[in-house]
Every structure is written in C-alpha cells, then in structure tokens.
Design a binder for these strands. Structure first.
Length: 261
DNA sequence: ATGGCTACGATCCGTAGA
C-alpha cells in the first residue's frame, strides 16, 4: 500500500502533472495540499477517471486540502476539532483500519510575525487533535506540508537558515511535540541519502542547485510504523515544465495482516 | 545586495507562499 503527500500549489494548474504522476507512481492514497480551488470547481470527474475518489475541503485562492483514494473514504472530517480556523488546512478520512489525516500547516511568514504566532497556535491545536485521534485509531497516518524542516540535515544551508521561519527552535519544538505523541517520521525510519529535500524555491534556480528544505512529511503511528517498508521523495515531477515547488513524498506499507511472523 | 519565481485576483500591482 502506497500513501503519498504532495503540495501541488494550485490543483487547476497542476492537474495534468497530478494525473500523470498518479498513473506513473500508482499510489493508493494521496494527501494533496494547496488546492487553491473551491469545492464546486474541484475536478472530481477527472480524478475519478484516473481511478481515485476524493474527499475535499477547498477554498478560493488559498489553502485547500484533499485526500484521494482508490478505495472508499469513510468518516470524513475537516479542520481541527475545537480550533476555529478560516483556512481549509485539515481533512481526515478512514480507509478500513487506517485513519489518514491530510494537513497543510501554516507557513508562518517570518519569526515574530502575527502569522508566526498563528502557526505556533495552530501546531498546539494540531497536537491535541492528533492525541485524540491516536487514542481512537491505532493505525494513523498524518501526511502533508508541515512547513517545518525538523533538523539541520533537512536544510540545504543550515547556516543561512539559522533561526529563520521553518527551522526556528519553537517550530522544531512543535514538531517534536508531535513525535512525542508516538508518531514517527517515516522518512527517518530508513537509511537515506544526504541532501534529500521536498521543496525548492522557484527563485535563484533553487532546484538546479538542490537548495531545498525537507518540509513535507508522512508521520505514522507506532502500529503503522511496523508495516512501513520505505519512504522516498519523488523528484521527477519537480523537473517538469511549470512544476509545483514541492515534490511528492511517498511511503510504502506491507499489506501484512498477521500479528506475528 | 533581503532581491531573485509562481499563482491568484484584482489590474498593469499587491498578497502570499517558503
């Protein structure tokens, strides 16, 4: 079973990239962020033709999240329970034994800004929400654009980025608070090559220089981590004409139903 | 050198992303 996350930076612009990638990568479930698309304009039929059902929470111009799946999406919920938010950043659904939560965490703009304070409030609310979800769903995956590079090795130039938004101590602390719930960064369950990132600035030839950050993540509960066999960034769509600035991250899971071997 | 792209919705520039 393959579970992916991809910030497409406008679903309307990126739909051909998305459908081509679905055909090539064959994920079973995809968490999509930055739809920038109202629900009424969501290309449901095109994605159904590609073999995927959709659960969506969209809005005009900004934000917007969706979960695409080859199988039925049940118990769909949107937003963070108990947290008032104008932004459409969270959607969750159940697929059999698996609970999937798709997140588009706030950018934060700059350390000390109002948006940064909102980002930290948002992460605190997310943590409480995930704690409750974990207590109900042992098989939980939280996938999306977290807008946090957890460690210096997730940053192309840690010196230049030191203290900046996406890497600041408060943001990394908020990230570690999610791990403290028992969630694992699926990427770090495995040996990885150095300098692997999931986002590259459009400017200054960021992708050519591999000047990136690893900010898109697939977190898994302890139960799900046992079944996780790989996690990789797929850079291929970032090489296309008019790409998203993010690349998809894809995690693999054994279909193992047994308790012990 | 605090810029540099890209998407969007409103114009021929501002907001936002990261």
């Amino acid at each position: 079973m393959k579970l992916a996350t991809w910030n497409v930076n406008s679903l309307r612009v990126r739909l051909p990239h998305l459908t081509d990638w679905l055909a090539q990568a064959q994920p079973d479930i995809v968490c999509v962020q930055e739809l920038k698309c109202e629900d009424a304009k969501f290309p449901r039929a095109e994605l159904e033709a590609a073999g995927y059902q959709s659960a969506i929470s969209g809005q005009k111009t900004y934000n917007g999240v969706a979960i695409l799946s080859r199988s039925a999406l049940l118990d769909v919920s949107t937003g963070i329970a108990g947290f008032q938010d104008e932004h459409k950043r969270v959607i969750a659904a159940t697929l059999g034994e698996l609970r999937v939560i798709c997140v588009y965490c706030p950018n934060g703009q700059a350390v000390g800004s109002e948006k940064y304070a909102y980002k930290l409030r948002w992460f605190a609310a997310l943590k409480e929400y995930l704690a409750a979800e974990l207590s109900r769903h042992p098989g939980l995956a939280v996938a999306g654009d977290f807008n946090v590079a957890p460690e210096d090795r997730d940053v192309h130039d840690p010196k230049a980025w030191e203290g900046q938004v996406h890497v600041s101590e408060a943001e990394r602390s908020a990230w570690r608070a999610l791990l403290a719930l028992g969630l694992k960064d699926s990427f770090r369950l495995f040996e990885q090559p150095e300098k692997i990132y999931s986002w590259w600035d459009y400017r200054m030839m960021g992708f050519r220089r591999n000047a990136g950050l690893r900010i898109d993540h697939v977190l898994v509960s302890a139960e799900l981590a046992k079944r996780c066999t790989a996690c990789k960034v797929d850079k291929a769509p970032r090489k296309l004409e008019r790409p998203s600035d993010h690349a998809p991250v894809i995690a693999d899971f054994a279909e193992d139903q047994s308790i012990s071997a």
